[in-house]
Write a protein that binds this DNA or RNA. Sequence first.
DNA 1: ACCTGAACACCGTTCAAGT
DNA 2: ACCTGAACACCGTTCAAGT
Lengths: 177, 177
Amino acid sequence: MKIHKRQVIDVALALLDEQGLSELQMRAVASRLDVQASALYWHVRNKGELLTLMAAHFYNAALTSVPDGLAWREWLLTYGKALRGSLLGHRDSAQLCAIAKPLDEDAAAATDILTRPLVLAGLSRHVALSYQSSVISLVLGWCIYEQSEVLHDYLARVIGFDESFTTGLTAMVTGFP
Amino acid sequence: MKIHKRQVIDVALALLDEQGLSELQMRAVASRLDVQASALYWHVRNKGELLTLMAAHFYNAALTSVPDGLAWREWLLTYGKALRGSLLGHRDSAQLCAIAKPLDEDAAAATDILTRPLVLAGLSRHVALSYQSSVISLVLGWCIYEQSEVLHDYLARVIGFDESFTTGLTAMVTGFP
DNA sequence: ACCTGAACACCGTTCAAGT
DNA sequence: ACCTGAACACCGTTCAAGT
């Protein structure tokens, strides 16, 4: 039975949600596709590339969900919340993003797409990339803790995740010069 | 030859710096101590605990380096920079923190130590923990990207790491209500 | 108490061979 | 072009046995 690259990614994402990152094995992905593990290597260079593609999925989902035409502070707020939402939509996604190497496709092109809305809203490329980096970093770091099995329950009790995240993100974005 | 838990951690940290996280294997750590890999399991429950202890080392180094008596905004700024400095002092340290589970010692006690300086500076425990979480998240996320082999060179060219990080951290801390 | 030596289970990856 | 089947190297971990 023929399988496609897209299916490999989708099955891997489903497996991640159900079993977590530690149980995301090539054999497990293959088994869900009724295929041998070695078959995956026709579609994907190695496990690292699969993780990269999965991470790209999280980033893309956030980016495309933000509407056009926002002022840059609004855009950064909306994007930050969207990225957190995208990550929290899957299990262990932030850890995955932390260990996945970014796509080796031209980094310049990637950051170009990422900063375009901000540049259109009037920021210079340099400032846009700088602000964007801070927002993404905050979200990634935050979700790593929020998704941590050990910390989650305790932190959820003493701080409200939603409320505290919004406070931090808002502080940063309104604090930008 | 007898070895001690501290040596295991120190050797692991040295190995991390030289070879990176992917080459941090129990056998490699043991070999440096002229000991069999199985001997490590007398001192450490498993590799996960070793990673946890290494991560705790990074967090502790930052915390103890911040002087007493600062106003809370100053404290957060100093701590944020210190934590980034501590992480950048070792290779792949942010990735390590992202995958290491926190110490299973009482989470309440741990956050207590972390927020004490802020509480002494006049913040409520709730607000202190909330702000602290945002700062730590920003630093962790930031260092993950800064230490990424693939991204580092490109990002270093288009943004200044030091300058952009300071911008983001300062914006957040001054933006806190 | 602390370490050795050998073993086990598991996992990513390769590759010749099939269709 | 795309998959199978078998194999290999490697790694975390266990455990009886030593001292």
